[in-house]
Simulated scan of single mutants.
Amino acid sequence: MTDAAHTAGLPDLQACRIMVVDDNRVNRHLLLALLERDGFRSVEIAEDGVDALERMAAFRPDLILLDLMMPRMDGFEMCRRLRADPDWQDLPVLVQSSLNRAEDRAKAFAAGATDYVTKPLNALELLARVRIHLQKRALLRDLTQFRQRTEAELAFARRMQERLMPGPERCAAVHSATGITVNAHFAPSSELGGDFWGMRPDPRHPGRLHLYLVDFSGHGVGAALNTFRLHAILQQTPFGGSDGPADVLAAINRRLCTLLPRGQFATMLVGEIDPQAGCLRYASAGSTKPMVWAPGDAAPMMGDSAGLPLGLAGQAVYDTRELPLPPGGRLFLYSDAAIEIPVGRDVLDDTGLATLITPHLHEPDGARFLSVLTDGLHATGPIDDDLTALLFTRTA
């Protein structure tokens, strides 16, 4: 019976490479004949462990049929050396030996054997086990390749997400145009997430800066697709003009409600730093609480962040609120990963975060401020979501 009859719908096992390692010439040729009669087309023979190891790199077997009792290097030592090499840690090693005591089997498995059959060999059993281990190896290889391809595609998608957000050159340009220094920290989780942020100077009002921070529900491809949907909407949405942050947020929500699948939503803050008025005007769709402080302040002031998340109701109405932001003042925005860190039976929350940053409010280096903050967050507990932290500092 050929291998094709046994493996319909499975990979072509007959093309797999098998190495027979046995010091007995009769046994070697018997195994070679059995395998060739069953349709295997690539079989290599070796006389002992030393001979086999010398042939490994060139032949690259998919399975080894290994005798245990051999001169120069026995099967136990060969197994140990194979498992010590990363290239061969997962290679199936089917031991065939006249040693049939329980302690011999245990010793073989401890050395790295995959399976064990005793001599005299039963041809049908041996061939069945060969096919089973080759099938498993082929499926494992396919799974590994699929995982590697998926990880590469996810890494590419993650890089695309990161490109949605302003980089150092953009932050430098904003500083030149508005006098506002922007420091940003973005650390994606192991999965694709839904955080992103952006900003744009207002050409009609010199020094004014429009900004937003978004956090979509969920993780994975769905959340990532939603960030691209919303980013496209934002590129077509005018900021400034006669509409304040609340009107802008309502317009974004109306468009997003027609695109999001049922049950998905996003929190968002839309704001504008107005240097002439010395304030931050903003509207919140369930975002985290913005924090501001002025030179000399002992603690940050937290804003109200109440508001219906985006994507839940097309006619949602939002409020424009204000926080003071005088020269030298700072605005701190963050994603909810910063306040959902487990602390005992609770989470850090906004108040805990404010307490964490209070000793560092007047750190002159904004990048250093964010570095100390993120170190403190990681020391507090595990962070299992995208972490975004933004610091906007007005020129004193």
Rank of each mutant, 00 (worst) to 15 (best):
E47G: 14
L63M: 08
S42G: 14
A57I: 10
L53V: 07
E54I: 15
D48G: 02
D38F: 07
G39S: 10
V43P: 00
F40T: 01
D48W: 01
D62T: 14
L65R: 05
D48K: 00
V50K: 08
R60V: 14
R55G: 08
L66R: 06
L63V: 03
V50W: 09
D62R: 07
G39V: 05
G49N: 04
G49H: 00
E44Q: 13
A58Q: 12
G39Y: 02
P61L: 09
F40N: 03
I64R: 02
A52D: 04
A58C: 14
R55N: 09
G39N: 00
D48I: 06
L65C: 06
P61N: 06
L65F: 04
L65N: 06
A58Y: 10
D51G: 04
D67Q: 02
D48R: 03
M56I: 10
V43M: 01
D38P: 04
F59D: 03
S42V: 15
D67L: 00
R60F: 12
R55C: 04
V50R: 10
M56G: 10
D51I: 04
E54G: 15
S42W: 10
A52K: 04
D48F: 02
M56V: 11
R60A: 15
R60M: 14
R60E: 14
E47C: 10
A52E: 03
R60C: 13
D62Y: 08
P61I: 07
R55L: 10
P61S: 10
L66D: 00
A46C: 05
L66C: 02
S42L: 14
D67F: 02
S42D: 13
E54M: 15
R41H: 11
E54C: 15
P61E: 08
D67Y: 05
D48Q: 02
E44M: 12
D38M: 09
V43E: 00
M56Q: 08
F59K: 09
A52G: 07
E44R: 12
V43C: 05
E44G: 11
A52M: 07
P61V: 06
L66K: 02
A57T: 12
V50C: 06
I64K: 02
L66H: 08
L66P: 00
R60G: 15
S42M: 11
L53P: 07
G49W: 01
G39L: 06
L63P: 00
S42A: 14
F40W: 06
S42Y: 14
L66W: 04
M56K: 06
R41W: 09
D51T: 03
V50E: 13
G49Y: 00
V43S: 03
I45T: 12
A57D: 09
L65A: 06
E54Q: 15
A58F: 12
F40P: 01
